[in-house]
């Protein structure tokens, strides 16, 4: 006798490349959670998904692009942002999302990060911050909290990590928020806000790496990490980003810290050219690429 099992359809299945499952992420990893939020945010924002492009760099989080059923680009290490910049400027009607990890975006790609924020290129940058280089086996990164153990700081990390919201705001981002993988509704909400905003938007999502960060630092599994996020997180919208630095297993300030208006690079470029060239200026690259 056979039993029929009713499997409800996955509500975000249309946004996933199901032919690529199973994914490469470890049990307890938070990247998949953030991707679920991303898919729901795309649905909630009611974007034309044919016009949404996702760009990743290299690393565990860099694999998001490969699983998203969108036009997707898995670029070189650290260079997702400049690739996305070219893509966006050459076809401004695209919504361009950069989805990558802390090592990719902030260490090897840190220079591009600050300059894209400075220019206010209209990019939605999502940084999954797991405090460590996952794919290469758990080395110290630019966000590793001081004193934490990694494979290349086996006696504890002596460095001060970047405070990413502070960095993003200082460089010129118009939208800056931080959540943890525990805050799925808030992540989704922030992503929707980013999709609706023009300019360089930055979302940091703290996410567990049970295989490397948690284990080496004896912090338990993914569930333990979630408990830590739940207990240590304090929501403070509008908190001065200077005050939101993270310490090893310390309190985590979350929320939307920055939401300002500033003309984007393309708006400023078009204004400048129209002002200087007057009638000779017939419009930006957009119209010409489309034609």
């Amino acid at each position: 006798m056979s039993t029929e099992v009713y499997l409800p359809p996955n509500p975000v299945e249309a946004l996933l490349r199901t032919d690529r499952m199973p994914h490469i992420w470890c049990p307890g990893c938070g990247i998949g959670t953030t991707m679920n939020c991303f898919a729901r945010a795309l649905q909630q924002a009611r974007l034309d998904l044919d016009k949404v492009v996702i760009v990743s760099g290299i690393g565990c989080s860099g694999r998001v692009a490969g699983y998203a059923n969108l036009d997707s680009f898995h670029t070189t290490h650290g260079r997702a942002i400049p690739f996305a910049t070219g893509l966006k400027l050459a076809n401004p009607e695209l919504t361009v999302v950069v989805y990558s990890g802390d090592g990719d975006l902030i260490a090897i790609g840190g220079n591009h990060f600050i300059h894209a924020a400075r220019r206010n290129v209209d990019l939605k940058v999502i940084c999954v911050n797991n405090f460590i280089y996952g794919m290469t086996g758990g080395q110290v990164g630019p966000t590793t909290p001081a004193t934490a153990l990694t494979s290349t700081t086996p006696y504890g990390c002596p460095e001060q990590p970047f405070n990413l919201p502070y960095l993003a705001e200082s460089a010129g981002a118009v939208y800056v928020a931080r959540w943890t993988a525990y805050h799925v509704r808030q992540i989704t909400h922030s992503m929707v806000e980013m999709f609706r905003k023009r300019g360089f938007c930055f979302l940091e999502i703290l996410s567990p790496c049970p295989t490397l960060y948690q284990r080496r630092n004896r912090l338990g599994d993914g569930l333990e990490a979630m408990k830590y996020y739940k207990e240590a997180s304090v929501t403070r919208h509008g908190a001065p980003t200077k005050e939101v630095a993270i310490s090893f297993q310390g309190p985590i300030l979350v929320g939307k810290f920055v939401d300002i208006e500033r003309p984007t690079y393309l708006e400023l470029l078009n204004q400048q050219l129209a002002r200087t060239l007057e009638a000779q200026y017939t419009g930006c690259i957009e119209d010409h690429v489309r034609s």
Partner: peptide, 8 residues
């Protein structure tokens, strides 16, 4: 290369 994939 981003620009190329956008059509330029």
């Amino acid at each position: 290369q981003g620009a190329v994939w956008a059509g330029a």
